[in-house]
Design a protein around this nucleic acid. Structure first.
Lengths: 154, 154
DNA sequence: TAGGCAGTTGCAAATAGTTGCAATAATGCC
DNA sequence: GGCATTATTGCAACTATTTGCAACTGCCTA
């Protein structure tokens, strides 16, 4: 299914409208081929159609996420977007070196299933960003030592 | 351990400073007794000391989170803060009715441990907000039906 | 094809949050 | 208590995102 048809069928199925602006936003994300920031998307859309308003880009990013055509994640204080894949995937973000690793949905789904069984709550998150320390940094970054007296000028 | 002493010992242990502004921010969150928004915190702090700058509040919210005295979560587009408990806990947020339930750390920790074993990545999130549909809404909210012809004025 | 309905947009204004810098002040040492 | 160091603050300016509203326009039906 081509990009344009995918947008149409998904959006129409929700009783919403297909607009040029929405197509442009989706195309910008697809063209980026991975994680892309709000600004990068706006720049790309503006290059194609300068009259598209920034507000419209923001609104349509939210919209495309609701339609599950796009997934978002906040990493390092910035919002990133990428095209939603056939299969959800999640990220491991290192707080120290900012490296971003992937983790399969299968791993996470076990938790979601457990929550559903125990609390009848259906978690529907397709794109989780889990923060911590990566294999490298966990050995480099230590916990704060209790403070000792410090030599002046040390 | 009283609030003031807790701030001092934690902050001094990291080689950082104890300031009146930091105490006021922590006290505002404690006084709220649950989830409280940035604005509510700022309002409370301002009532106690009108010269405290908004920027300072933002900075100290971040700081208190780093010190693990406070936990943050973005729920429904807003940032909420609460005092960090002895034991981490996490939330289940319903996308439909906005209800917020709790989930124990034990449940989530199984996933974190698995990630550590399989990928040597130590997840350190003490306050996760997982989104989905609650027991009530999962039966109420249906998936979009394929659109059928609609009667005008229906 | 034309018309009606309501979803969507552009725009200005507002809100939320961050940055850089000089001044202030907490802490440790003597 | 005084001094030096440097962490932190207030402030102005900046960036990021959202809100409200009138105008526009996508889609459906006759």
């Amino acid at each position: 299914m081509s990009g344009a048809n995918e947008l149409r069928s998904r959006v129409r199925a929700h009783g919403k409208r297909v607009t040029p602006q929405r197509q442009l936003v989706l195309d910008a994300i697809r063209a980026a081929g991975g994680h892309v920031t709000t600004n990068e998307i706006f720049t790309h859309v503006s290059a194609a159609a300068s009259s598209v308003n920034r507000t419209t880009v923001y609104r349509n990013l939210d919209f495309l996420c609701e339609m599950r055509l796009v997934v978002a994640a906040q990493i390092g204080g910035k919002m990133y977007y990428e095209i939603a894949g056939e299969e959800p995937h999640h990220h491991l973000v290192c707080r120290h070196c900012d490296s971003v690793g992937e983790i399969s949905h299968r791993t996470v789904k076990a938790l979601f299933d457990k929550i559903e069984r125990e609390q009848s709550f259906v978690v529907d998150m397709d794109h989780l960003a889990l923060f911590g320390l990566c294999a490298e940094c966990r050995h480099t970054v230590s916990k704060p030592k209790l403070r000792t007296r410090r030599k002046r000028g040390g």
